[in-house]
């Protein structure tokens, strides 16, 4: 099967109606959502519905009045706005604006991650909680941990974009690719809304 046909004339072909990148990232988001749904279901089942008592800390005492997590949530959600601004700036070709908005996005996302680290240091270091200490630990660390992992992935990708932009290799023709990445970042934020509601609201205030 060693055939080498001449390269067809691709330029003459019909442009596609739907963007591969956007449809692809939407599919990835659907897939990832179902992954998160499982961990949310596990949390709801054990902690919110069954309210398993196995000697572990009580989530109501643990999470009620935790101001830090509200501040962190607001920062993460506002980073969704800044990433849109960055994306629009890039599409217009305003590269400096793009870089500033992207840097702000990174800072906001970084702050969220920092807040998570602080919380985990408190839970693990001070209270001795971990996946194996109680059902709450199991559900909490796996759910919040997987979200944090997605934040890390998103931040890494966004930082790469910033780096590439500083190298001058992110022209406005690539704006759609950046927009695709920003959709992923929105997804990370929207998942947090669900995680936040599940972990910090449902059991704690009902």
């Amino acid at each position: 099967m060693a055939y080498r046909p001449a390269r067809p004339n691709l330029a003459s072909e019909e442009p596609q109606h739907l963007s591969r990148g956007k449809v692809g990232i939407s599919c990835l988001i659907i897939t990832e959502s179902f992954f998160f749904v499982c961990f949310i279901v596990a949390y709801l089942y054990y902690v919110v519905i069954l309210q398993v008592e196995d000697g572990g800390p009580d989530p109501v005492e643990l999470f009620r009045g935790d101001i830090m997590v509200y501040i962190a949530s607001v920062t993460l959600l506002s980073s969704s706005v800044t990433v849109v601004l960055a994306s629009r700036a890039l599409a217009r070709g305003a590269h400096d604006k793009f870089r500033s908005w992207l840097a702000i996005t990174l800072l906001l996302g970084g702050f969220f991650l920092f807040a998570t680290i602080l919380e985990w240091m408190h839970l693990i270091g001070d209270l001795g909680m971990w996946l194996d200490t109680s059902t709450l630990g199991t559900c909490f660390f796996s759910l919040v941990g997987f979200h944090a992992l997605h934040v890390v992935i998103g931040l890494t990708a966004l930082s790469l974009c910033l780096l590439i932009s500083f190298m001058g290799r992110l022209p406005e023709q690539q704006a759609e690719r950046f927009e695709v990445l920003s959709w992923y970042w929105h997804f990370v934020d929207v998942v947090w809304l669900f995680v936040f509601t599940t972990v910090y609201i449902l059991r704690v205030y009902t």
Binding site: I30, E32, F35, C38, S142
Partner: peptide, 14 residues
């Protein structure tokens, strides 16, 4: 596949 496989993945991660 997009909908079913991640559920298995999540269960296996657990």
């Amino acid at each position: 596949v997009m909908i079913a496989l991640p559920v298995l993945t999540a269960a296996q991660v657990m």
